[in-house]
Design a binder for these strands. Sequence first.
DNA 1: GCATTTAATTGAACGCCGTTCAACGGCTGT
DNA 2: ACAGCCGTTGAACGGCGTTCAATTAAATGC
Lengths: 208, 208
Amino acid sequence: MARRYDHSREEIRSMALDAAEAIVAAEGYKGLSARKVAAAIEYTVGTLYLVFENLNDLVLQVNGRTLDALFERMAAVSGPADSPRKRLLALADAYIAYAKAETPRWNTLFEFVAENGNSLPDWYLVKLSKVFGLAETALEPLSDRRQALEVQQAARVLWASVHGICMLKIRQRMDLAGGQSTEAMAGMLIDNFLRGFAAASHGDQQTE
Amino acid sequence: MARRYDHSREEIRSMALDAAEAIVAAEGYKGLSARKVAAAIEYTVGTLYLVFENLNDLVLQVNGRTLDALFERMAAVSGPADSPRKRLLALADAYIAYAKAETPRWNTLFEFVAENGNSLPDWYLVKLSKVFGLAETALEPLSDRRQALEVQQAARVLWASVHGICMLKIRQRMDLAGGQSTEAMAGMLIDNFLRGFAAASHGDQQTE
DNA sequence: GCATTTAATTGAACGCCGTTCAACGGCTGT
DNA sequence: ACAGCCGTTGAACGGCGTTCAATTAAATGC
């Protein structure tokens, strides 16, 4: 049995990604294997290696799709008419909602990363930047009174923080949150950070 | 070759943990295997399973040690004479310094977690709480003017956020930080959050 | 219409992995 | 001297990622 040509390379590629996403959603990152993906699309392992460099590559593509989905969901709630605070809260809620709804997929985003020596391809970094960019865009109106770089840095600090809160809650189901919901924690973060950010004029220093 | 009795169960246990820590430090979590640990302590795989439930159990113990080390380092820099802000900044710096110095060990803390269905044993949660507790203690002086619960929640939000920042920087070596150092990002977070937290009296709401 | 080339696909093979457990053989008590 | 104990072994099982010679159907040339 060879030379079937039922599907083009591109078709096989997307079938494999679909199958991999389904397996991850059902069994998590750990449950994913080349043999399972191959079986699901009714090809054999060898074929997968014609289309993907290796399993890491496949997972990276899956994560790329996840980042796209995340971006879509977040972009949909970010109305330009709203205040920075409202936009950030909406973005955080959307992020948290996605992480809760698609926990295995979201987890895979981070369970994977550390493996290949910390070097991610450019196309992946671009997708990541797009997600971060939403927070930056939301904060942009503040650039009147503040240096643009500082606002950008604030957006990234805030977004990394929202992610940290989300991580804490979802990964370890901890009672370390003091009884707050993920959304409430993110809200507390955003409110206090923005209040502090607005209060400080550029160059201010706290001394104690 | 049987019945050597060179070492007690407890000795084997700690030798295995030492070996596992060394392997993780050298090759990361992914490089760890039961066979490698066994070879390093000059026993065979079977023996490991008399002393640990399974490999997950072994890694959990390793992570327990990591949390202990983290706590020690952080506790050492947290002087009660300092202001909450200074203490938090010092804690964040110590946390970041540990994560940088012992990156594979620190990464293992989070690469492991999601595996066993999100249930962590009590002794592990206690160790985690101790680390979080340092941030809570640092913020305690604020409890004069604020409800104790709110201060505790703020500490946890802040700590999860510091972790998120650390994660972002260390796991993906990203330029998504806008050129700031990890310490600068954590400092920006803490300064703005605390300024905002101090400015808001209890029950205040931002409406826009 | 047949033979040859081409390339898509296979699946066995390699060396790993976590985990289990029947068997081994020094040690201890009698 | 012997039996039984039990700490320890290591082969075995099923699964993993990855490779690549072999297979075979389609495309091409004649």
